[in-house]
Design a protein around this nucleic acid. Sequence first.
DNA 1: ATGACGATTTACT
DNA 2: GTAAATCGTCATA
Length: 206
Amino acid sequence: MNRRWCRADFCRPADELAPALLGHLLVRQLDDGARLAGRIIETEAYLGRTDRAAHTFGGRKTRRNQSMYMRPGTAYIYFVYGMHHCCNIVCGEDSADRNPVAVLLRAIEPMAGAARMLKNRGLVSGDDPRLIGSGPAKLCRAFDLDRSSDGLDLTNNPGLWVEEQRMPLGPGEKVARTPRIGVDYAGPWARRLLRWVIRDHPHRSK
DNA sequence: ATGACGATTTACT
DNA sequence: GTAAATCGTCATA
């Protein structure tokens, strides 16, 4: 088994962690024994107080986003559009008055437990596996992540963590950088290049 | 107490 | 390409 990411791995700026996560493994151990794993294909950085697209813009601290103010390595999982969840990893400085920043996980490629992920997604064997994790809400459903997992410490819990990969990017795999998705309301911040994706990967979001 | 809206997905024309 | 689904959250009052 490969190394589990620790606190220090998450203690860096969001626009540094987001590309660094690509190719590494998000692992989920369910209560019933099922083990799920997905290779991280696509991420976005949310830069905190100054970032108009971030839930913590202007230093807002609400019931929903309180996990953003917890230690680097905390999962920030929120409910949106009345039916979907999205999963972030809190990062940045490990201090009391830290800027509340995080990385949104936008796509994974199933690497273990694909059959179970299909089931979690309401799909059936034979459906295109690219439907499993090619979007932030899709991957949450595949991994059975909802608000009950909000605030989890990824460095110290039995159900969810990031696993180091020796060669996160294969030969020939390139990283592309683009504006973030679905934040058109954020003015100039919507145009910042804060989304990273393994170029042309079949499991990227659409 | 109220109303507008969303870091999306899916189905449909 | 467009639109519906669907409800917790947040700002305002």
